[in-house]
Amino acid sequence: MKFSPIRLLLASCALLLTFTPSMAQRQAADTLGYENQRQKVNELLTQRSQRFGQFDESLKRRTGIFGLKTKKDMQASIDILKQIVLMDNDIFRETKMLLDYKDFEKSQIADQASEFDGRINGYIKTISKLQLQQEQLASEINGLEKTNQIYEGIAVLLGLILLGGITYVFINRQKLTKT
């Protein structure tokens, strides 16, 4: 069976493409996870902005005598400010998770790239090895064809010699029988 470099390259590409869909699905899942985490951080930022608006309103609220702030007004402002600080802690934690996620994706992409490089180098080595074997087999076939031609030439020569010998014997017998 003859292996051409084009056939080997096509087979290698087909083999590589069989692994690609599962990797693409994994990347899509990773990207989806990152997007979900990003949306979570955005939601927290929106909630923080709303709480800060509530804090601003509570600072303006004055329910005391002569338009002064009461202890209750100040306590409400402090409670809202505590919620904002807790929200900021959540935002920092979720943002760190988002950055860790991105770093994980980068390292995963780098790992996949090195894995693909290794596979491609392996395919190249295999193709080179098969091409070398193909060249060796082609030279072996050429040698066998030359040997076969020599044997065919010898067989034709022996056949001609044999035919000539039979013809010679036949002619000599006829001469002997006529005399």
Score class of each variant (00 low, 15 high):
1 M>Y: 10
2 K>G: 02
3 F>N: 04
3 F>A: 02
3 F>G: 00
3 F>V: 01
5 P>S: 02
6 I>Q: 08
7 R>N: 06
7 R>K: 06
8 L>P: 00
9 L>M: 07
9 L>V: 03
10 L>Q: 04
10 L>K: 04
11 A>N: 13
12 S>D: 09
13 C>K: 12
17 L>G: 08
20 T>C: 11
21 P>C: 00
23 M>C: 11
24 A>S: 07
24 A>W: 00
26 R>Q: 13
26 R>Y: 08
27 Q>C: 07
27 Q>L: 13
30 D>K: 08
31 T>M: 05
32 L>W: 03
35 E>L: 08
35 E>Y: 05
38 R>L: 13
39 Q>D: 14
40 K>W: 11
41 V>R: 09
41 V>H: 06
42 N>C: 02
42 N>I: 04
43 E>Q: 10
44 L>T: 01
45 L>T: 01
45 L>I: 03
47 Q>L: 09
47 Q>C: 00
49 S>R: 10
51 R>E: 08
56 D>R: 14
59 L>S: 06
62 R>C: 15
64 G>H: 02
68 L>V: 14
68 L>Y: 04
69 K>F: 06
69 K>Q: 11
70 T>D: 02
73 D>C: 01
75 Q>K: 13
76 A>Y: 05
76 A>V: 12
77 S>C: 07
77 S>A: 15
78 I>V: 14
80 I>G: 05
84 I>R: 03
86 L>A: 15
87 M>P: 01
87 M>C: 10
89 N>Y: 10
91 I>E: 02
92 F>Q: 15
92 F>S: 15
94 E>Q: 12
94 E>L: 03
94 E>Y: 10
98 L>A: 04
101 Y>N: 15
101 Y>F: 14
105 E>C: 07
105 E>K: 03
107 S>T: 14
107 S>R: 14
108 Q>H: 14
109 I>K: 06
110 A>M: 04
111 D>Q: 12
113 A>G: 04
114 S>P: 01
115 E>Y: 14
119 R>N: 13
126 T>L: 15
127 I>E: 03
127 I>L: 02
128 S>A: 14
130 L>H: 10
131 Q>R: 06
137 L>R: 11
139 S>E: 15
139 S>L: 09
139 S>Q: 15
139 S>Y: 14
140 E>H: 13
141 I>K: 15
141 I>W: 15
141 I>F: 15
143 G>R: 12
145 E>A: 07
148 N>K: 11
149 Q>T: 09
150 I>R: 12
150 I>Q: 11
151 Y>S: 05
151 Y>G: 00
151 Y>H: 12
151 Y>R: 09
152 E>G: 00
154 I>V: 10
155 A>V: 07
157 L>V: 02
157 L>I: 02
161 I>V: 10
163 L>H: 00
163 L>S: 10
164 G>M: 08
165 G>R: 01
167 T>R: 03
168 Y>T: 04
169 V>R: 03
169 V>F: 06
170 F>L: 05
171 I>F: 08
173 R>G: 01
174 Q>N: 06
176 L>E: 07
176 L>P: 00
176 L>S: 02
177 T>L: 07
178 K>D: 01
178 K>V: 02
179 T>V: 06
